[in-house]
């Protein structure tokens, strides 16, 4: 099947032609398949946030292309607008963009902009609320009366209600407590499975991306430095550390064990670690 989103030789230069000019992206190419869960990791200022804003046409590349279903999203004005709905983007701290009187109205902002009829809007709002675990009762309260974690879920529901084929989230769990983090990550998984959607998640938590994603993109100094499975990426631990990134804690422990001469494989999730240790125990 053809990839849903293709990025070709993307380049972006901020404030072109002024003394403040600087390159944020240089020659970035990759593609996303349907139903894939892709993680993006990279140091602060590596170009992650700039890159994801290109995928739904918020920023226009200074060179290169973004193809949605094989069509350049900048080839036609209508297509650019369509790409906003087909590629949903949840910004960092999205709860700061809430503005309506009720949760229901806020979630319906996106579907309304799509020009859907009332019945369809209602269906989407209620379904999106369900995906993120909001109760029917909560739909009628003001979003400003909710807790931080709940506000975040309302904001994510606001994007999910557009039923995007690609859902991009910029650090969706930043600043939440462990329970809130797990819930949001589970909500994202539920949406992905229900709609066979492609998920792209920017994260600083190596163990989260190791556990959840099928593929990892590593950004470094405006370039795409690595593109591979978590196993392939975390095998290059030394390079990651040089980029100011880290590897999952469990991988660190196992690498140290290897150094000490213990015969264990390289792992990057807790489950793999447990399996490896059980195997080791069986052998001894």
């Amino acid at each position: 099947m053809a990839p849903i989103l293709q990025v070709k030789n993307l380049q972006y230069i901020y404030s072109m032609g002024t003394p403040f000019q600087h390159t944020a992206l240089e020659d970035v190419s990759f593609q996303l398949e349907r139903g894939e869960f892709v993680g993006i990791i990279g140091h602060t200022g590596s170009g992650k946030s700039t890159m994801i804003q290109h995928l739904n046409g918020l920023l226009r590349p200074t060179a290169g292309q973004v193809l949605l279903d094989g069509q350049d999203i900048w080839s036609d004005k209508k297509l650019t607008r369509q790409s906003r709905f087909r590629v949903g983007l949840v910004f960092q701290y999205p709860e700061y963009q809430l503005f309506e009187e009720t949760v229901y109205k806020d979630i319906s902002f996106g579907p309304k902009n799509m020009g859907l009829d009332d019945k369809e809007i209602d269906r989407r709002v209620r379904q999106a609320a369900e995906f993120v675990g909001l109760t029917q009762k909560q739909l009628e309260v003001s979003p400003f009366d909710l807790s931080g974690g709940q506000k975040r879920r309302v904001a994510i529901a606001g994007v999910i209600a557009m039923e995007p084929e690609v859902l991009i989230l910029d650090e969706p769990t930043a600043g939440l407590d462990p329970e809130g983090r797990e819930e949001i990550l589970a909500n994202i998984q539920t949406y992905r499975q229900a709609k066979n959607a492609t998920i792209m998640m920017v994260s600083h938590s190596m163990s989260d991306v190791a556990r959840l994603t099928d593929r990892l993109l590593v950004m470094n100094k405006s370039h795409l430095a690595m593109d591979g499975t978590p196993g392939q990426v975390f095998a290059r631990a030394k390079e990651l550390v040089e980029m100011g990134l880290s590897i999952p804690d469990v991988t660190k422990v196992f690498l140290r064990l290897q150094e000490m001469g213990v015969d264990v494989p390289a792992v990057y999730t807790i489950d793999q670690a447990v399996a490896a240790l059980k195997q080791l125990k069986g052998r001894v």
Partner: peptide, 13 residues
């Protein structure tokens, strides 16, 4: 700037 981008991402015109 940030809020504008976020609302544009939800189709605001």
């Amino acid at each position: 700037d940030k809020i504008m981008c976020a609302q544009k991402a939800r189709g605001a015109d």
